[in-house]
Structure formats: C-alpha cells, structure tokens
Nucleic acid binder design. Structure first.
Lengths: 218, 218
DNA sequence: GGCCTAACTATGCGGACGCATAACAACATG
DNA sequence: CATGTTGTTATGCGTCCGCATAGTTAGGCC
C-alpha cells in the first residue's frame, strides 16, 4: 500500500480518550481477562493489559490499588459472569419448581458459558483459591448464595413430584446435581468435545431427571 | 538456644548430594509441584524450586532443557498421578464389569486424590490447555486412553444387566458418568465441603447407579 | 472564563527473573 | 592412579516486572 500518509490512520486516537472511572475500570478488567485467556495469568502484566486496553500502563495504578487488586476484581467479575445466569433462573418464582430447575440447568450450560476463554480464566483463578485468602473469599462469596437457593429448589421439586421419601438428604442430592452440571461444563469447555448444539443440555436434563427420579413431562 | 556452634547443625549437608539424573529430576518435579500448590504457578521460579529441592538453581538447567520443560514434565506427572488409579481399576479384568465400574469410581475419588494441593496444581495447568499447544497435547494424551477404556466398560455393564435398550448411546452415558465423577472431585477439592470419610464415594456410586439404572447388589 | 479536580501519559528505578558460563567435585573406568 | 564424564555450585548478564513520580490535558463548576 504506497504512500498512505494519512496521519489519522498512521496515528489513530492521538488524543487520549477520557472515560469515567467505572467505564475505564471495566475496560481494563475486560483487557485483563482477554490477556489471561489468550496467554495465561502469567502474561497479564501491567504493560500488556494497558496496551490491550489502548492506554498507558500508568493508568492502571490510577484506577486500581495495584495489579493485584485488578486481578482480584477480574476474578470477581468472572464469578459474577458465571453465576448470574443460574441465579436468575433460580429466582424465577413464576415457574413451577420443576420448570425452574430445568431453566437452571439450561442457564448453567448455556453456550455463552462454554467458551474456552471463560474456562481458561476460571481455571487460572481457582488455582489460587487454596493459595491466596483473597481469592478464597471471592470464591466462597460467589457460591454461597448459589447453594442457599439451590437446595430449597430441589426440596420443592421433590415435594411437587410427591416424592417424600427421604432416602437421601436434599443436601446430598444437591451435591450430586451440582457435580453433574459442573462436570458437564468442564467436559465441554476443557475436552472440547464436539457436542452438537443442545446435546449438552439434553445430557444434563436427562442426568438430573435420573438422579432425582423425576420426569420433565407432565 | 545459646552457643549451638555445632557445624553439622548450622551448616547441614555441606557437601552436595549426588543423585542419578532420574532421581534428581523426580525431586525437582516434586519441588515444583509443591511450590505451585503452595504459592501458585507464578511463584514456581528456578531459584525457588531449587531452594525447595535443596540444590543450586543452576542444576535445573543441567537436568531439564529449561524451566518451561520442567513445568511441562511436572504437568505430565500430575496427569499420570490423577489417571493412574482409575486406569488400574479399569484394567482389572478379574472383576465383573459391574464390580470393575465400582472399583473405578472408588479409585477416582480416593481421598489421596482429593488433596487440595492436587487440585491447585491441576487447575493451574489446565488453565493453559487452551493457551499452550504443549500443555494441550499432554492433556489430550492423558485422557485419550482413559475414554477408550471407559466406554467399553459401560457397554459391558449394561450388557451384564441385560439392559440392551439403546435409548442413549453408550458415549452419552460415559460423558454423564465422567461428568458426575469429575464434578464430585472438584466439589470436594475446591469447595472443601466437609464430606465425612466415604460419603463422596457413596454419592458417586449412587449417582452412577441412577444414571445407568442399575443396582450394585445382586 | 478562570480554575481545580481527575483522567491520562511518560519515564525511571530497584528487584527478580531465566539463562549462560566457568569452576569444582565425585564417581566409574582403564 | 590417572582420566574422562557428569552431577553440582556459584555468579553475572540482559530483560522485564510492579510501582512511584512528575508532567499534561480535558471537563465540570461557580
């Protein structure tokens, strides 16, 4: 491409774009997650994240206490991103318990949550849960209300089905169901098996029904 | 403690201990995994791993091509450590298929595999599976034969139970069972729920039986 | 419209990193 | 007992890291 001397092309965005602190923090967290997903947590340096976000590296210290705090915020954002769909389904009191459970399963295995990038960042973070107390508290906080809302739903589903047999505590059933759903999420994200669209959710719904000994149909 | 001028105490192991290359490599890999579990993959530097192993930092380059190769070897060792018990159970052709499956479940959730340190290292490594091609090939190689031996076992279990109904492909059942087992492993390792001894395996055996619609008893 | 707050750039410093290299020491071999 | 091989230590070099700091510019407010 000869003589493309257009200064607006060779030097785009000459002037720094001013954003609100919240907006800039969001963009920096997004850049952080992108770098971690593509090159690993090790590569998420201030310089690289700043370059990815299109800003100077010094700006990070202006919006965060430091690199560590930015990483922690990125982890919190990841937890929120992963749990929000499930929690939204659990909160849908307009549905019968059984339909709410099905909605929860579908939301938890939504294709949007099966992106390999999300898995990579998740794995990098949870590797530090037993290493760093701050990561642990973010982890615990993220899954605490999750379980608090999930177990009552299971109890409601069993009650709806007239299954009052307490052969197994509801807590145990919740553990099994969570394990199945989480395990399927990992298999689809990590092993990258070529599951046809919807197959993953089908397997989850089927497994949940078998463990609870219920039917999805009326 | 006054005047403890014993030179053998203040300067223990003055002389370097010579080991075979294999033995030294093993100790270095062990030190690498320990550092990763305690302080994260980021902290696994040549100097720190060497100090942990009680050797000089330069020795690592003598036994490995470099730090990267040592980390890769440590990952391979982790995969082997995680899959060996399950593979051993799968190979026990002296048992009936059903008992072999039960042995596989028990081996996969053995308390020795539920140590938090093992989970931390696993998570740190798999975070790089989608980032680094070498990590990916170790991952794929580790789980390839795993699945190749698992699916036939499921088919044999169904045949043994006289269940010839092919409502679901064996491959799908294998995915569900693997997801349940892996998910339970993660719940026990990550959430650190206080599962009483044996409870985890009970939940797994129960879930597997429900998904396959079989009984463990005769 | 002057001004002050805050978003932003630019640069340098001390430290830790991976790696190369040179010297040393133990062991096997003849 | 000389000698080559190799496990091992010690040290320095160049690079990149997080962070501090000084300087610059945009925008809200009375």
């Amino acid at each position: 491409m000869p003589h493309s001397a257009d200064p607006t092309e060779t030097q785009p965005a000459r002037r720094p774009q001013r954003l609100s602190s919240d907006a800039r923090r969001g963009e920096l967290i997004e850049a952080t997650l992108a770098v971690i997903a593509e090159e690993g947590l090790r590569a998420a340096t201030l310089r690289k994240v700043a370059e990815r976000a299109g800003v100077s590296n010094g700006l990070i210290r202006h919006h965060f206490l430091g690199k560590r705090q930015m990483i922690l915020d990125a982890y919190a954002a990841t937890v929120e991103r992963m749990t929000a769909p499930g929690l939204a389904a659990l909160a849908r009191t307009d549905l019968t318990p059984r339909r709410r459970l099905a909605a929860f399963v579908r939301a938890s295995l939504d294709p949007g949550l099966s992106e390999p990038t999300l898995f990579s960042t998740w794995a990098a973070f949870v590797a530090l849960v037993h290493v760093d107390a701050d990561f642990e508290s973010i982890h615990r906080a993220g899954y605490r209300d999750y379980q608090a809302q999930f177990e009552p739903l299971i109890a409601a589903v069993l009650a709806e089905a007239g299954r009052t047999d307490a052969a197994r505590p509801v807590a145990d059933l919740a553990v099994q169901l969570n394990a199945l759903i989480d395990g399927l999420w990992i298999e689809s994200s990590l092993l990258a098996r070529d599951f046809p669209e919807g197959t993953l959710i089908e397997l989850a719904l089927d497994g949940v029904a078998r463990i609870l000994n219920i039917d999805w149909e009326d």
